[in-house]
Amino acid sequence: YQRFLVTGRTQADWDWYARGAVLFLGGDQGFTCWIARRLGYPLVVYAEWQVRYSRWMDRVGLRTAQVYPQYQQQPEKFRLVGDLNIDGVMSRGPSPLAAGTWVGLLPGSKGLKLGLGGPLLMAVAEQLQAKHPVQFVLPVAPTLSLAQLAHYVSPANPNVALMGGITARLEERTDGPVLVTTHGTQVRLWTEFPAYDALAGCRFCLTTVGVNTAELAALGVPMVVLIPLNKIEVMKAWDGLPGLVMNLPVLGNFIARRVNPWLIRRTGLLAWPNLLAGRAIVPELKQVLTVADVVQASLPFLTDDDLHRTTRTQLLATMGGQGAAQKLVGLVKEVLGYSRDDTGFR
């Protein structure tokens, strides 16, 4: 990548088309501007939180007007497109889950989250089922195999004792795979992707932070957002210099243990619906978590119908409508010389 930025040549020596466009969907806007200049392509940027280096951009699709309040001064360049994270997030029919009350478990798809979240959610599932007649479904990310998932909730995970002491084993059954916990609680594994139909049938979900909080909000599914600080050195997914330094070999964990408490104190709300609303619509548990903490925050969504209904209404209102992807494609067509309605060049 660095060699490409400097020389314009990739390792595989790609032969670039003379005409094209660079589409930015996330990451570092500065690098994307550099790539566009290197290729001589127009640049279309999807701006989620902020706009940087706008003079080098040809079109900018804004998630909301607040991302760039002065956008109306350059209506040709800046357009409101909406939220890409929820575009296409919808339930396409009745829930495929069996009758009953279902709770969705979303521990994440990467090792740093699964190492803590996996065993924590297994322990919470046991405690919730002991208090309320519920069933559990866990959507499996397409980048994660069942064997990998099973590893993180098995005794082989060194964090099990730290996160509640409950493990689970993988069982392949005729009606699909399940995780069975130490004391027999069953968690159905949902392998179809995307899992919107299954999630839409859940009473509420226990989830980590990420785009999944936007997807759940767009479906109107209440959630409890878990940010466990039980092993603070594993939190290394920071943007910019802090993330780079914490991922250094040997010294990374040492630095993370000392810098993370300061960084965490400076962070505010983290779940997408809370960020968009500017207030805590759904609870965020950002602390050293115990099973009892999570169960206590979860039970109101099972027992209080008014709370459940109000939260669902607020989530749907906060996330807004759809159509962002189509609008962004329109910006790409503009810079490439297509008319908005035709498929050929003008």
Rank of each mutant, 00 (worst) to 15 (best):
Q73Y: 00
Q73L: 14
Q74G: 00
P75Q: 08
P75A: 05
K77M: 05
F78V: 09
R79V: 03
R79Y: 00
R79Q: 15
L80F: 05
V81T: 14
G82Y: 07
G82K: 06
G82P: 08
D83L: 08
D83K: 04
L84I: 13
L84W: 11
L84R: 11
N85F: 01
I86C: 09
I86L: 10
I86N: 02
I86S: 10
D87M: 04
D87P: 02
D87G: 05
G88Q: 11
V89H: 12
M90Q: 15
M90R: 15
S91C: 14
S91A: 15
R92C: 08
G93N: 11
P94Y: 00
P94W: 00
P94H: 09
P94D: 14
P94Q: 14
S95P: 01
S95M: 07
P96F: 08
L97P: 03
A98V: 01
A98S: 14
A99G: 13
G100D: 11
T101H: 01
T101R: 11
W102C: 10
W102V: 11
G104C: 12
G104K: 05
G104D: 09
G104A: 15
P107E: 06
P107L: 03
P107H: 05
G108Y: 04
G108Q: 07
G108K: 05
G108T: 07
S109Y: 04
K110F: 07
K110H: 14
K110D: 12
G111R: 13
L112V: 10
L112K: 01
L114K: 06
L116K: 01
L116I: 03
G117Y: 01
G117C: 11
L120N: 06
A123C: 14
V124H: 10
E126D: 15
Q127E: 15
Q127D: 12
Q129I: 05
A130S: 13
A130C: 03
A130K: 13
A130T: 08
K131S: 14
H132L: 14
H132G: 04
H132C: 15
V134W: 09
V134I: 13
V134Y: 10
Q135P: 10
Q135I: 06
Q135H: 15
F136H: 12
F136S: 10
F136M: 13
F136N: 12
V137H: 12
V137D: 12
L138A: 08
V140P: 06
V140G: 06
A141V: 05
A141W: 04
P142S: 10
T143Q: 13
L144M: 14
L144I: 10
L144F: 02
S145H: 03
L146Q: 06
A147W: 00
A147Q: 15
Q148T: 12
L149N: 02
H151Y: 15
Y152D: 01
V153C: 06
S154Y: 03
P155D: 07
P155Y: 00
A156C: 00
A156E: 14
N157C: 01
P158C: 02
A161R: 08
L162W: 00
M163W: 03
G164Q: 02
G164N: 02
G164W: 01
G165P: 04
G165I: 09
G165S: 08
G165K: 07
I166C: 11
I166T: 11
I166H: 11
T167K: 04
T167V: 15
A168I: 06
A168C: 08
R169C: 07
R169L: 01
L170H: 09
L170Y: 06
E172A: 11
E172F: 02
R173W: 02
T174N: 10
T174I: 04
D175T: 12
G176Q: 10
P177E: 07
V178Q: 09
L179D: 07
